[in-house]
Design a binder for these strands. Sequence first.
DNA 1: TTGTAGGCGTTATCAA
DNA 2: TTGATAACGCCTACAA
Lengths: 353, 353
Amino acid sequence: MSAARYGVGVSTFNSVPPGAGISDVARLAGVSQGTVSNVLNHPERVATATRDRVRQAISALAYVPNGAARSLAAGGSRSIGLILSDLENSLFVDIARGAERAAAEAGMSLLLANSDGRLESEDRYLDLFAESRVLSTLLTLNDDQHFRQIVGRVADSRSLVLLNFQVDPAEYCSVDGHNERGGYLATRHLIDIGRRRLVFVGGPDSLRPVSERHRGFSAALAESGLTAAADVTPDWINRSDGWRVGTGLVEAIAAGRIDGIVAASDLLAAGMLQAFATLGRVRVPHDVAIVGYDNNQAAWDSPVPISTIGQPGEEMGYRGARLAMEELVEGDAHQHRAVVLEPTLIVRESTVS
Amino acid sequence: MSAARYGVGVSTFNSVPPGAGISDVARLAGVSQGTVSNVLNHPERVATATRDRVRQAISALAYVPNGAARSLAAGGSRSIGLILSDLENSLFVDIARGAERAAAEAGMSLLLANSDGRLESEDRYLDLFAESRVLSTLLTLNDDQHFRQIVGRVADSRSLVLLNFQVDPAEYCSVDGHNERGGYLATRHLIDIGRRRLVFVGGPDSLRPVSERHRGFSAALAESGLTAAADVTPDWINRSDGWRVGTGLVEAIAAGRIDGIVAASDLLAAGMLQAFATLGRVRVPHDVAIVGYDNNQAAWDSPVPISTIGQPGEEMGYRGARLAMEELVEGDAHQHRAVVLEPTLIVRESTVS
DNA sequence: TTGTAGGCGTTATCAA
DNA sequence: TTGATAACGCCTACAA
């Protein structure tokens, strides 16, 4: 996949002026390059006096090590990469924070990139990280097709951990929320508060988390001997989709054919709520109770705060980074693992008043 | 600043297995290394047949160029770095998106890092990017002190562009929103709708954007011969601060001593709104009109959608990245510039019903 | 159009 | 504890 991106021609940019190198430092401090390198990487091997002298030279020259040369000589960097699919969704921000914590604890750095869920960007940054020789890259994903496309192209030798997406441990390590359980929890909650005419709103089915949540919904219904009042599959799971869907549901709700909704995302739920509020014929939770998913800002910021399923985003990022590191330490002996994290029901006013 | 971070000792991680190198590709394709390099970087110099043969060898071996070696030999990377101070704030996400667009247009990549507004992280990532030899780094800032600390340490030779923070063009390029004008617009709007007992809520003053917005507030008042009904300086500008401040203001509003509020951020405004709604003695906008700042999700998601001052975040990022590239192209001839972007008033229900 | 060879700035090995 | 010196993988003149 790499080759396609080359041939972009010569850069028109002036490159960064050289600045002082390790040899300049060595000369000024009156030592050899090797010694300078040692005070940088193995200070304990250098006599205190020498070390101080070198450090002085370093700051005198404002010397900045060249990471490229360093990675080249050392055979690798000390960074891991994380490609996020949606910076607007606070879940991913949490993931980044968790991954960063894990990296920091291990003395490594975290490089971020935003793919905006576009396969093309996922690809590009996967390449970039591969070329940067990051120790490992973490990739958040939510689309089965993307996964298939990507897997085929990523070199086996590179460490890759999938986040927010569960895969067969035969292929990769992954950390995911238990979406089916989340869908179940949301539905169970609605049933527990007495709702019986339930709808799942979410789609398309190619979004893996969505279809899994749907499955949980169905399971909870079956368990109680209920059947879905309807199935609604919007084009996507954003606020505007919720608005559209909400508008279409008002009639059925007002007529009493629907009294509970499980939405595949908080944005979807928030959009529906807005539609209901605007059209004015449906009250939440009186006429219809709604549960969202992800515990985004949209959920607690909504006019009627939305009950939702919380995902442990920070933990997802943390565990993901840890898995990556284990993989690095264990080497060939490594067995991929699929970690599945438990979601939590968070009850707010959209289901109980 | 760099030196302090070294001496972390030897890595315990296995580095990535070597994989195929350019020489392997050359051998398989039956050409020289130079030719392989050319098909990668200057395909037009290579005969079609040769090129195809090389490309086949590349994919056969799953060859991934080593970015470190590449940057080293080429004397620089093709990435720019962006350090964000707050991923929770959608303004910064917009900035990232704009910068990414500019980078993509120029065939470059954008590396992200999240400093969470911590000086220490800003420092760390500045170092990391410097070592990575990114062509330029963009840094969002909002604190004067941080700026001073950082400037002293960053090597002059490196290109640095400040975002969301205006600095003397003698020092760096910067792109900022016109905060004083924004504060003015917000205040003017309140005056225009007949409010006269106005308060500015925001702090601390060390946050540069806040103090500038405050100045705009004062200017608008002075222009109309008014004086501030009060000045409120919360500890910070988050939702919880808004809640606290809001609670403290209820009395004065109910008594008619305050009828308009300019908040330094949407979160602050949203927090106050929540406090008012909970305590129940004050109606918005009837008893008090509120304007926020930034046009965050929090503003339009609020129970009463909040009027606000919109910042052109995407443009900020885009222009910042462009400035960085100009600086690179112009080299020594470059004159730093301070770009100031116009804010926009967005009217919602918190000021007019 | 292709091959040759020197060098990019570090790290690591081995001797001193 | 320190100093030489050989990689590291690739790019780019320059020569053929």
